[in-house]
Design a protein around this nucleic acid. Structure first.
Lengths: 111, 111
DNA sequence: CTGGATCCTCGAGGATACTG
DNA sequence: CAGTATCCTCGAGGATCCAG
């Protein structure tokens, strides 16, 4: 049992799930893994989600120190999203999650 | 874009999150990582959840091939849950998620 | 272009009681 | 002991419109 920010966790895994388990967060990290993207580019990458949801999840991930939001004060506005050093530190985990997901599909392709 | 079981995934990570992203799934895997547990033992380990939810998540994980449900036909009933080989193959990922969660806490302990 | 504000849906998750 | 059956809550996620 660990207490962190007034919340009790059974193990650090629970916290990790909370940080990256949101509906689009892991995939957002995936898309940002090797590039910087603007808000509208992300919108186009996720045609099945809404601006609100994307903005919300990006905001949470920024608050949690996973991504960096860089705003250019110009007209028209321009905002770029990229990974922080800590966000990048999640990449190995993400890659192993990716590999495991691929293994799962490979093993269950015939069903 | 990958289609698997009539659902479209952006990347295998999305599938992985679906398989282990449920509220208790990752922690269930964690608890079962090195031991076999009976239903009531799991109930006692999760005082903040209900039989229904635990049974539901266990059922899904059994369906997804992550855990093994072994029923002993006796009175009183006895059911043991353990990890399948495929469930065990997720352990390295889980450990890295655990380590990363610990790192996160360590870096943010002063806030 | 990058969001915020508002209102709404819907299903994950919970409370409680019952059963083989 | 190991669950189901029912009913219900509540908030994540969505639709839509507005704003700097």
């Amino acid at each position: 049992m660990i207490t962190f920010r007034d919340k009790v966790y059974r193990c650090p895994v629970e916290l990790t799930i909370e940080l990256i388990g949101g509906k689009w967060k892991a995939v957002l990290l995936w898309e940002l893994s090797n590039k910087t993207l603007r808000f509208n580019e992300l919108i186009r990458l996720f045609p099945n989600t809404t601006r609100k949801m994307l903005a919300q999840q990006l905001k949470e991930m920024e608050r949690d120190g996973l991504i960096l939001r860089q705003e250019y004060y110009q007209i028209p506005p321009k905002v770029e999203y990229s990974l922080t050093a800590f966000g990048k530190s999640f990449m190995p985990v993400l890659f192993s999650m990716n590999q495991w997901g691929m293994d799962y599909m490979a093993e269950n392709i015939q069903e």
